[in-house]
């Protein structure tokens, strides 16, 4: 990967919540344009925190953040970052705060200085592309969980970002919504980092995995998610699978 395509460059980031053990511990991570990365790791391992640090919502105690080749430190540096990196929150109710869907999707573009009419056009275009036409006047809190997730994605995409940070986008979705989410993500011309605990979902949406462990990100790529099929009779003899989905992915982190 050449240096021009280096988008996110974190060096020696350390972070801990008040009265907590260090959550991120001299973490370094590089993310390149065109990457589609899955981020896996145990619950409470700092994955969401890492996203929030990239967006400037949390301040690390130490370390250097470079985004699009420029160091970012202060709130005003992060403002321009937030236009180019879109964060999809774990809980869609955090993301959707406007009364109606159209208002919520138009919120970002309006903040970027678009006129009301332009913002409406952008919002409609994004809703349409996610198969949400006709949702404009729906009341956000009355949407189903899956609809909320897709509308949240539309609100993020309406900012026209270059990179997405997706925090467990597939959690709690039914088969159909998951399938359409996979279709949308793979059809996008965007780079993204995606947190998920679901191997199949990661397999369909990402090309490599970063593993988070002990407050660090391991991105050497020696562990790949792959699908495998095997066949055996449902024999009378009980048997164990020594590897594969039968094993928890955290077992592979060691």
């Amino acid at each position: 990967m050449d240096k021009d395509n280096l988008i996110i460059n974190l060096t020696d980031i350390s972070f801990s919540y008040p009265e907590g053990a260090p959550l991120l511990n001299n973490l370094s991570m590089q993310f390149y344009k065109g990457d589609r990365v899955g981020l896996i790791g145990p619950n409470g391992g700092g994955k969401t925190t890492l996203f929030h640090i990239i967006m400037g919502l949390l301040k690390p105690y130490s370390g250097k953040i470079e985004i699009f080749g420029k160091p970012v430190r202060e709130e005003k540096d992060f403002r321009s970052v937030r236009q180019r990196i879109g964060l999809l929150f774990q809980d869609s109710d955090d993301q959707l705060f406007s009364p109606t869907v159209l208002e919520d999707v138009a919120f970002g573009p309006l903040n970027l200085g678009k006129s009301v009419d332009e913002a409406k056009v952008i919002a409609r275009k994004n809703l349409d592309s996610l198969g949400l036409s006709g949702f404009e006047d729906r009341i956000t809190y009355k949407l189903s969980g899956g609809e909320k997730r897709m509308v949240s994605l539309a609100t993020v995409l309406a900012m026209e970002p270059e990179i997405l940070l997706l925090d467990e986008p597939s959690a709690g979705l039914d088969e159909n919504t998951r399938a359409s989410l996979i279709k949308v993500l793979t059809g996008l011309d965007l780079s993204y980092i995606l947190i998920s605990h679901e191997m199949e979902f990661l397999d369909s949406t990402t090309t490599s995995v970063y593993i988070m462990k002990d407050g660090k990100v391991f991105m050497n790529g020696d562990r790949q998610i792959h699908r495998h099929y095997h066949i055996h009779p449902h024999s009378a003899l009980p048997h164990r699978h020594e590897s594969g989905f039968g094993k928890k992915y955290t077992d592979f982190l060691a």
Partner: peptide, 22 residues
Amino acid sequence: VRGERVYQAMLCRGFKGKFYSL
């Protein structure tokens, strides 16, 4: 806590303290 997260989500979408009406 919810209020804080909502505010963060708004910041991520470029909120600068002004609301616009459609």
